[in-house]
Write a protein that binds this DNA or RNA. Sequence first.
DNA 1: GTGGTCTAGACCACC
DNA 2: GTGGTCTAGACCACA
Lengths: 131, 131, 131, 131
Amino acid sequence: MEFRGDQAIYLQIADTFCENILLGKWKALDRIPSVRDLAVEIEVNPNTVVKTYIFLQEKGIIFNKRGVGYFVAEDGMEKTIALLKENFVYTEVPRFFKTMHLLNLSLDDMRVYYQEYKSRENTKNQKDSAD
Amino acid sequence: MEFRGDQAIYLQIADTFCENILLGKWKALDRIPSVRDLAVEIEVNPNTVVKTYIFLQEKGIIFNKRGVGYFVAEDGMEKTIALLKENFVYTEVPRFFKTMHLLNLSLDDMRVYYQEYKSRENTKNQKDSAD
Amino acid sequence: MEFRGDQAIYLQIADTFCENILLGKWKALDRIPSVRDLAVEIEVNPNTVVKTYIFLQEKGIIFNKRGVGYFVAEDGMEKTIALLKENFVYTEVPRFFKTMHLLNLSLDDMRVYYQEYKSRENTKNQKDSAD
Amino acid sequence: MEFRGDQAIYLQIADTFCENILLGKWKALDRIPSVRDLAVEIEVNPNTVVKTYIFLQEKGIIFNKRGVGYFVAEDGMEKTIALLKENFVYTEVPRFFKTMHLLNLSLDDMRVYYQEYKSRENTKNQKDSAD
DNA sequence: GTGGTCTAGACCACC
DNA sequence: GTGGTCTAGACCACA
């Protein structure tokens, strides 16, 4: 797994985790990988994974059974949506529109980018399912 | 000037500077405030301003005359647009659409947010011009 | 370590670093000394070392893993050679020949100086290995 | 006139001045341009030219008649050669060979560069005399 | 432990 | 006056 330099690694892992929840890869009460396993898999320090799990636990998305492992909370998907949506609507969206405006781009320009984005995604998914 | 805690101050200063360029407050070949003056004005350490100016200089947005001061580059606005646009189109836009998609939001939902954003901006501007 | 007064210390550190790369003391993907360790070793302020490392990172010669340290880039030697060679061939060499010409010196004169230089170097190396 | 960023402007002016002496453009006891005239011509601050002239005067290359102007010293050319040669032989040449060695270049490689340099100079001179 | 950032204050060369 | 550099020391997030 590759990480960007502009954000803490443990948060990037959390982002990916949230994606997986929303995409239905992990469902309510599913057991998620152990700290050690995940650390090996994505090649980061175990402490970093611990920080991710603590972060997600504080958000109520996962919970921990002592000596057993971490599990997706019963309302994990709702909590995930709440987490992402709050940040998206109140922070990302306004910032996005601000930059859009500075660059003299309109919502219609976005429509064009959106078409491109969707066709790229389709291509990627086809390739993935072909693998 | 107030700063957020999620990004280095010197980068937030740089962002504001880019905005000012795009809004036409500073034009090509204009002399910009000296390191010391700006430091006093926005209440940060001179070294922090130095870091901002070096950063902008590396991006080709400003240049410096020894012992005279910093100036907006002749193609400063183009460089600024290039800097912002590159990051926006290739990083922010795709990430934005990705989150949008995860949250099951459509471009039409964005249109609603955009109306809200614009009306907020108008209110703000009216307040500013009233001050 | 001793420094000349005609060039910024952080650049002299960078020069020494480049030499070490080219002499094979540090190889691709080697971890280089931490900012603090190097600062202590060569008796400069940690901030000065930071400036050197940021400079080398921008040149693509080293890279950094968050919370771990700095490492020589995979193509660190190539980047180093590119950096030195570009400046040497397009700036230093022509300036050298220009001065040579002004002083009425020929390449054959240089050959004499070169012999002297090499014998001095040999003497120095013998002394070093004797130490 | 254009200046590099890696050396003080007053020294770059002094260098050009020395070249002119060695190329015979200014001869012993010639009057050289006034501070003001030269400052206008090469577009620098008059104080900078003053600094150049003081520097050259300290080296014995020019002298000053109060209220009249600056003149090339009787032994100006010898002093100029002495100045350049000292720095060249003891500083530039060793540094040049050091970089040459680090880059694995031989004196024979220099011979190639020298041919290129000379042919470029010839082209330039032909163009100048055609103007 | 690591690097990243910031403050405070100093000295310097330069224009 | 200007920017460039350096020191000293601090705090923080991160691995």
